[in-house]
Computed example of a mutant assay.
Amino acid sequence: MPTLVHDAMSRVVLTIGPAHTLRQAAELMSTRRVGAAVVLDPDTCGLGILTERDILNSLGAAQDPDRETAQSHTTTAVVFAAPSWTLTEAAATMTRGGFRHLIVLDEREPVGVVSVRDIVRCWTTREEGGAAARGRPVPA
């Protein structure tokens, strides 16, 4: 049976507003140990995503993280995943879109975020379990 997004996703959904500075976003992401934040704009009822890469690109462009806001760096053309997607579907979607995180929606509400790391962890764990069950050594 294929592993589903529901099984791999992080249920820690960091939600920030568009007025958060990049420094504030980075501090929250670091504290929660997540690589992306869901940006909820109550004025537009829209969801976006701010990733560690967005913050890195801003810093690389010598922008001030205390003045730059999440709104200016948020991806609003977001592709969402459903908890019932297979990890293969999620990975294919990420590959086609060139991104590393998907917001997982259930009934239009964010319930998680799935990352490339989450997918690799699940596939690796499953493969290691299968190798051990077949009597093959599992790499350390």
Rank of each mutant, 00 (worst) to 15 (best):
T74C: 10
P110M: 14
G98N: 08
V34Q: 05
T31W: 04
A133R: 14
G17F: 02
D54Q: 09
L59W: 08
T21N: 01
A90F: 01
R126A: 14
L102Y: 10
R134P: 01
V138N: 08
W123F: 11
G112M: 11
R136C: 08
R121S: 12
P2V: 12
S84E: 10
H6G: 05
V113H: 03
I55Y: 02
H73E: 01
A25R: 04
R33T: 04
R23E: 08
S10H: 03
L50D: 10
R126Q: 12
A26N: 03
R136E: 15
T44M: 07
R67M: 09
T15P: 00
T88R: 14
E68M: 10
L40H: 14
F99N: 03
V113E: 07
D54C: 09
R117W: 03
L47F: 14
E27Y: 00
R96G: 03
G129T: 02
E27H: 00
V12K: 14
L47P: 08
P18Y: 02
I119D: 10
G46D: 13
L105I: 05
A81P: 01
V116A: 15
R108A: 15
A82R: 11
T93S: 13
M1D: 06
T3D: 03
R67W: 04
L4G: 00
T3G: 03
V114G: 05
A92W: 01
G60W: 12
S30Q: 08
T86N: 00
L4N: 00
T124D: 03
R67V: 03
S58W: 05
R108F: 09
R23A: 09
A19W: 04
Q24I: 06
E127K: 10
A91S: 09
T125N: 08
D54M: 00
G60M: 11
I55N: 13
C122L: 12
V104N: 08
I16F: 07
L59M: 06
T95N: 02
W123I: 13
M29T: 03
D118Y: 07
R136S: 11
I103A: 13
R96T: 10
T86R: 04
L105G: 10
I55H: 02
D106N: 13
V114K: 12
I119A: 13
F99W: 13
M29L: 06
T15M: 14
S30L: 02
H73Q: 11
R121W: 02
E52D: 15
A132F: 10
R11S: 15
L102I: 09
T44A: 09
Q71A: 14
T44W: 04
S58T: 12
V5G: 05
L59N: 01
G98H: 06
R11T: 14
L50E: 08
S115P: 04
V13E: 11
S10G: 15
A133N: 06
E127G: 01
A36C: 03
E68Q: 12
A90L: 09
I103G: 06
V116R: 14
N57V: 02
D64C: 01
T76K: 04
D64T: 12
G17K: 07
L59T: 02
R32T: 01
S10L: 02
G46M: 06
V138Q: 07
H73N: 06
M9G: 13
P65I: 10
S30Y: 00
V5P: 04
Q63G: 14
D7V: 03
H6Y: 14
T93P: 00
A81K: 05
T21M: 01
